[in-house]
Amino acid sequence: MTAARPEARPALAGRARMSPRRRAQLSRRIQYVVLVAVVIVLAVTADWGRIGEAFFNKVAFQNIAPDLPGATLNTVVYTFAAFAVGLSLGTLLALMKLSSVRVWRILATGYVEFFRGIPALLVVLAFGYAIPTAFEVRFDSVILQIALALGAVSGAYVAETLRAGIQAVPKGQIEAARSLGMSSGATLRRVVIPQAFRIVLPPLTNEMVLLLKDTSLVFALGLGTAEFELTKVGRSALSQAGGGLTSIIAIGLVYLLLTIPLSSLTRWLERTTGYKGHA
């Protein structure tokens, strides 16, 4: 090869193509045009009068509004009660899964597989009807009943989350603590769990959001009006005449008001826990 001049390179000399930057720009413009078109079509074809009537009906909203604070409180109470049960049970199961005693590991694995594999509604029904019959116990409070039922399910998920979090703490951390003479219990409490906590915080929040929504299953227990939570209130309002789906919209908004702050809470906890240091 002698004197290879630029013209001798066909790849560069060929027909002028659009540059990658220009192509990406064009692609973005097309996507915006499609999006705007879809919005325009929806806005034009929708019957706004009827939508206002059926979804944002003022009268229907005024009917349901007085029930919302109580229902919200019930939802929150059910959630926290179930989460308390789920977290305690999950911690126990996670420690069982990490135990050196084989029987504990087998039992915990069996539990997790069972409760992860069946719908939560079945468990709620079991606590409503099957367990009272089988063990001749009567649950006086709906809170206790729903906390045990949903907590039993949630415990299975929490157990897996915690186990993964504990195992994600580097082995060197445990070795460092043990080589300082700390017992395995002190190592777990002072070194492993504080670090695992930060790791499991986002998935645990997720679990809490799922629980919050699962509290709607409480209807299967048969409730007095004072025990209604959000979904039950919304469904009852739905069966009353007029207002269409307004109650569902209202309930949905309340759920969002509860769940969205939870995500910010997680971010805040992640930021503020753990030592940042100064100077």
């Binding site: 580097p170 060197g172 951390q173 070795e175 460092a176 070194v191 504080p194 670090q195 753990g274 030592y275």
Partner: peptide, 10 residues
């Protein structure tokens, strides 16, 4: 240790 293994949360 080679990897120091300081407790990062303290």
């Amino acid at each position: 240790f080679q990897q120091f293994n300081l407790f990062p949360h303290r």
